[in-house]
Design a protein around this nucleic acid. Structure first.
Length: 270
DNA sequence: TCTGGGGTCCTAGGACCC
DNA sequence: TCTGGGGTCCTAGGACCC
């Protein structure tokens, strides 16, 4: 990442080992495809440096937007380097399975298949209303199918929720086990909130039973909370009020959302 | 997919207010 | 007292991603 920063790139980390680099500032004076090709030496240099410094291979996709860069990097997986020029993007996309498009999971894939659409090319050619198949994602899916994507890089780490959950080795309704679990989760979440100087106005518990049935119950409060004890007690309250531990649990989870600046800790009630 | 954990976003119904 | 609409918040569940 430090190396990438030296290139003057704007960076959006996606996970521990994946990131988008925007280099349009570095190659801005060129026609789109020319700029892409000009970034090839830098991409090769990045791969080489990662390998010599860490002994790891890296895969890079080069394209004019996030969607295409991601698909390009997926194209040739270990140790790949794929460039998708603007002029080739529609053809590049055509043979890909619909599942390759980010946002198309098992459910949307099934809906599309039932309409006879299994490749991105078929989505490109589809004259019907994709909303009927993919809901509000339909219009975006259509644009993605043609390689159009204007999502900007998201930098900064605005976080919207914090959660912790645990799947038990054996389903349990032992109150002591569950309380200890919840207490630990509350402590973890509290530490995260404090580290980020955030408070949470919504607390949610999640339970899953042996048959995989999963329920959530949440509660919003006036004052943003961040103390482990407050989170723990609200979690207990929700479990009890909703009688969620009516049979053994496979999973117990605690989550907070509606995050914002905490009030003066002195005023924190409950 | 006999199924782990931490996230985001969307939908839909109900409460409540104007 | 009943009806209608819009806006916002809360809640629950689900699809999806890494």
């Amino acid at each position: 990442m430090a190396l990438a920063a030296q290139t003057g790139a704007v960076i959006e980390p996606m996970s521990i080992d994946e990131a988008y680099l925007e280099l349009s500032a570095r190659y801005r004076d060129n026609e789109a495809d020319a700029a892409l090709f000009e970034s090839l030496p830098l991409a090769r240099h990045l791969k080489q440096t990662i390998f010599s410094e860490r002994g790891l291979t890296a895969t890079i996709g080069i394209a004019a937007n996030k969607l295409l860069a991601k698909l390009a990097s997926d194209f040739q997986k270990p140790n790949g380097l794929t460039l998708v020029p603007e002029r080739d993007k529609v053809a590049f996309l055509r043979p890909l399975p619909v599942r390759a498009i980010p946002g198309v999971g098992p459910v949307t894939e099934r809906a599309l298949r039932q309409a006879g659409l299994t490749t991105v090319g078929q989505v490109q050619d589809y004259p019907g209303d994709l909303r009927a198949l993919a809901g509000s994602f339909g219009p975006k899916l259509k644009r993605f199918a043609f390689g159009e994507d204007d999502r900007p890089l998201e930098i900064g780490d605005v976080i919207k929720s914090v959660s912790s959950e645990e799947t038990f080795a054996r389903d349990t309704d032992d109150r002591r086990v569950l309380r200890a679990c919840l207490r630990e989760q509350a402590a973890e979440i509290s530490a995260e909130l404090k580290a980020r100087q955030l408070g949470a106005r919504t607390v949610q518990v999640k339970v899953r039973y042996g048959d995989f049935k999963t329920l959530t119950r949440q509660l919003s409060v006036e004052e943003p909370l961040f103390e482990a004890n407050d989170l723990y007690r609200l979690g207990c309250f929700l479990l009890g009020r909703e009688k969620l531990v009516c049979r053994p649990l496979r999973l117990l989870g605690l989550a907070v959302s509606s995050l914002g600046e905490p009030q003066d800790p002195q005023l924190s009630l409950l």
